[in-house]
């Protein structure tokens, strides 16, 4: 399995997609940090935590990276040679999910560090007191990393399930930006368990004013739920990929 993960990481490194996605992720993090710091009001430590928690924007791009990594093999026809090397197709999907989780972890770490490098000096220049407890800091730090890593695996699962990368990316946007807010509006309990609500719970300390979700689930529940969503996507992706002919 480690050979397969290494091969997937090599594939990831050898096209421009990865470089572009990393650059866009870090660019977004820098932009979001600068905007938040320039325009935001920092009245509570929840606000401070939110500017320090940057994996949210990176996570979405990592999810898309995972989708492209899996569905792209179908798009370019490389899935054939890939399955010829590894006829046990579930191993390919699992290795890919692991590789994209590692990539997500790396991008999440870079995003978090970049955000901190921008925000900490700026906050101190603004005279904002950063008095987050160690527990809170490690929660947003590790929560963000978990979110980024699991997003990579989730993208692979979705890519395996959909095979068409454009359709899969559209599904991501529809779920996060249309379905989740709409359904949450109709059934208020849905919001905190939705993918959007769970990712918020993983990456922030609490809902801010104007956030689409007023309530968030506890951190451990968010971690379990997000991993559960990813695992069910990867699992159903494996079932489909194993059954469908590659033609």
């Amino acid at each position: 399995m480690s050979r397969l993960v290494a091969a997937e990481l090599l594939k990831l490194r050898t096209t421009r997609t990865f470089v572009v996605i990393v650059a866009v992720s870090l660019g977004l993090v820098a932009l979001a940090s600068v905007l938040a710091l320039a325009l935001g009001h920092f009245e509570s430590q929840v606000d401070v935590a939110s500017v320090l928690s940057n994996s949210g924007s990176a996570g979405l791009l990592i999810l898309i990276l995972g989708v492209i990594g899996m569905a792209g093999e179908y798009r370019h026809g490389t899935i054939g040679p890939t399955f010829l090397v590894t006829p046990a197709r579930w191993r390919v999907v699992v290795a890919k999910a692991a590789a994209y989780a590692l990539a997500g972890l790396a991008v999440g770490l870079a995003a978090t560090l970049l955000g901190a490098v921008i925000a900490l000096p700026w906050l101190s220049a603004k005279g904002v007191d950063v008095s987050l407890s160690g527990a809170d800091l490690s929660r947003i730090f590790f929560g963000g990393l978990l979110y980024s890593a699991v997003s990579g695996a989730m993208g692979v699962g979705l890519g395996a399930l959909m095979r068409n990368q454009i359709a899969a990316v559209v599904v991501v946007f529809v779920v996060l930006f249309i379905a989740d807010p709409l359904v949450s509006g109709a059934f208020s309990d849905y919001g905190k368990y939705s993918p959007s609500g769970v990712s918020l719970a993983l990456t922030t300390l609490g809902a801010q004013d104007g956030a689409p979700f007023e309530e968030i689930v506890p951190f451990w529940a968010a971690a379990l739920l997000y991993c559960g969503y990813a695992a069910s996507l990867v699992g159903s992706g494996i079932l489909l990929v194993t059954r469908r002919d590659v033609l």
Partner: peptide
């Protein structure tokens, strides 16, 4: 993959 070199294509298969 159109954006990958021949050598890297073969390397990825070899590693796997």
């Amino acid at each position: 993959h159109p954006g990958r070199s021949a050598r890297n294509h073969l390397r990825a298969l070899s590693v796997a």
